[in-house]
Structures are given as structure tokens and as C-alpha cells.
């Protein structure tokens, strides 16, 4: 039987050994428990390694593997030396494995860091249909999923619906991908040419690349419906080819009305061209990877009204 106390003792022993090996001692950092379920554990650990400095956590990687035998766990300590310092900063990682997720639940409950937030990153959306996964999700205050890989937004809504009854706040990295678009729209309407014309938006056009209507596009459409409820919304896939990974699928957003033209255009690359009533500018949209998306999402605590409003309108459409 997998015993949480044994895992914690193992961790404790690791801390002692690491501390003795380092002349300057080590600094233990922990701001949350991060549970990761589904997908390739090594890949997840690599993604989260980039985040450890900003969001130090006890990382618990939960793997379900046929033929795994008895449930098992191993603990290790991840350390890094900040530039110019003499003391290493370390955080903890626990890898758990079993044939069935349900077998690991008691141990997971036992290794949660007391009094700190618990976040669950669900990397396999198929888990959402399983009862034992919901038991795992019930331990978390926030569940992070990514529906951007699904072919169609309708599939995404079906997956998200399975989380509706839980107590955790659900976050979708497909929505997180839109922050810079939304921020740029906000800034455009702050410009001299537009600030008085907010009420003049009558038409919104949204164009994307890659066949189908991904959840990212649907979310943006939902947010735009919330933003400009009376405007006519025109959605179009302008290129069936899928863009390179990390560059996003949205190509153009245009908000117009009498005496108003705001156009945000994104050719492939890291920049976005902005045209506001004849004024052209450029902004950076650096390539987003999963680390960057998680970094933002882990900084958001509690409910996200904008996401909820966008989701509601996207589903309704």
C-alpha cells in the first residue's frame, strides 16, 4: 500500500541530505501544491520546471499506467542556484504511479501541503468523465485544462460541462491565450481617435487560420459579444492551414462603425499590426508556450468574471 507518511519521510530525508551537501544550506520554497494528472509526466515536469521560480510548489505528478503493479511513489528535490547567490533554492516533486487513478487518491490527500492552495492541471481531457478524477478535482481550488487542441469548440463545452458541479474554479488555457488580444483591444479604445466612439461599434469581424472553430476563437467571440452586445459579429476562417505551434490561430480582429475603424492584424510572427483611424503601430505578441500560459493562470486567484461571461456567451452561440 502506498503510504503518504512514507513519502513525506522520504522528502524530509532528502531535505536533510541536500542541506548537508550544500555549505550555504538550501532555501525551501513552496507556495502551493500543484497536482498534475494525465499525459506524459516527464513533459509536464519539464514545463513546470520553468515555473518553479515564480510559482514554487510541491509538484505531485500523478500517472496512471497499465501494468504499473503496486501503487508507488518517489520523491525528489529540484534545486537551482539564483544568479549571484550562494544559497540554492529548492522545491519538491513527488511522482506517483498506479494502474488506476483511484488507487492513488488516499496518498495524494496525504501529501497536500497544509494551508496552501491546491491547483490541479488536467492534461488529459478524457479524465473529465471519470468519477475518481472528480474526487481528485475536489481536492483543488482551481482546475486548469486546455481545450485549444480540440477540433471544435462544441467538444470543449462538453468537456467543461463535466466540471460545472465541482467546487473548484475551472480555468482554460485556451482563454488564457487571448489575454494580449483583449489587452490590445482595451488599449486601442484608449486612443484619442477611439475613446469617444466606443458606442459606435456596429460590426465586429474575427478571422482565424486552421479549419474548424477552435475554443480560443469561440471565447474571443463570446467576449466580444459581451463587450459589444448589439454589434453584428462576423466570424470567418480565412486559411484552412494550421499555423505553427505557439503562434495562435487568430489572424485579424476588426471593430468598425460610422467614423471608426480599429484593426488588429497578426501575420505569422511575434508582432501584431494595429491600425486605429490611420495611426499604425506594432506590438509584441511573443510566442506562447504552456509554461507562459500556466504562469499567467497561476497568478489569477478566485473567479474570473471575464472568462465566465465569455464562456456563457460562447456556449449560448
Amino acid at each position: 500500500m502506498l503510504d503518504a507518511s512514507r513519502v513525506l519521510r522520504e522528502l524530509d530525508s532528502l531535505w536533510r541530505t541536500t542541506g548537508k551537501q550544500e555549505s550555504g544550506g538550501v532555501l525551501r520554497a513552496c507556495a502551493m501544491t500543484m497536482l498534475v494528472a494525465g499525459g506524459d509526466c516527464d513533459e509536464a515536469a519539464e514545463t513546470l520546471a520553468d515555473l518553479t521560480r515564480e510559482h514554487p510548489s510541491r509538484l505531485v505528478l500523478i500517472a496512471e499506467r497499465p501494468g504499473a503493479g503496486e501503487p508507488s511513489a518517489r520523491a525528489n528535490v529540484q534545486c537551482w542556484m539564483p544568479f549571484g547567490r550562494r544559497q540554492q533554492i529548492c522545491s519538491e516533486q513527488i511522482e506517483m504511479e498506479a494502474e488506476q487513478l483511484g488507487e492513488l487518491l488516499p496518498a495524494v490527500r496525504g501529501v497536500l501541503v497544509p494551508d496552501l492552495p491546491v491547483v490541479l492541471w488536467c492534461r488529459d481531457l478524457a479524465l473529465a468523465g471519470r468519477a475518481e478524477f472528480h474526487e481528485l478535482a475536489a481536492l483543488a481550488g482551481k482546475v486548469i485544462v486546455d481545450t485549444a487542441g480540440l477540433a471544435d469548440a462544441a467538444e470543449a463545452w462538453a468537456v467543461l460541462a463535466k466540471f460545472d458541479s465541482g467546487r473548484a474554479v475551472v480555468a482554460d488555457l485556451a482563454w488564457t491565450r487571448l489575454t494580449r488580444w483583449r489587452e490590445t483591444v482595451q488599449q486601442a479604445f484608449r486612443s484619442e481617435a477611439c475613446r469617444e466612439k466606443l458606442s459606435a461599434v456596429e460590426q465586429v469581424q474575427l478571422k482565424w487560420a486552421g479549419a474548424g472553430m477552435p475554443s480560443t476563437v469561440a471565447y474571443l467571440a463570446g467576449w466580444l459579444r459581451w463587450l459589444a452586445p448589439r454589434a453584428e459579429l462576423d466570424l470567418a476562417c480565412i486559411d484552412a492551414r494550421m499555423p505553427a505551434k505557439g503562434f495562435g490561430r487568430i489572424r485579424e480582429l476588426r471593430l468598425s462603425g460610422p467614423d471608426l475603424e480599429v484593426r488588429l492584424r497578426r501575420p505569422e510572427g511575434i508582432g501584431v499590426a494595429i491600425e486605429i483611424e490611420g495611426l499604425a503601430a506594432r506590438m509584441m505578441f511573443p510566442r506562447l508556450d504552456q509554461s507562459a500560459l500556466l504562469r499567467e493562470e497561476l497568478s489569477v486567484f478566485g473567479r474570473d468574471e471575464h472568462f465566465e461571461q465569455a464562456l456563457e456567451r460562447s456556449r449560448a452561440a
Binding site: 489575454t179 483583449r182 483591444v185 482595451q186 488599449q187 479604445f189 458606442s199 459606435a200 461599434v201 471575464h306
Partner: peptide, 20 residues
Amino acid sequence: MVQPGRLDDPLRYDAPVDPA
């Protein structure tokens, strides 16, 4: 018509700066 308050999302990004 755009709802101006809905442009701001302080959870994710800062308040915009005036042109200047």
C-alpha cells in the same frame, strides 16, 4: 455599442495609459 467597463480586466492586465 461597447461596454467600456468590460474592456478592463485587472486580473490579467493593467489599466491602459492615456496617449501622450
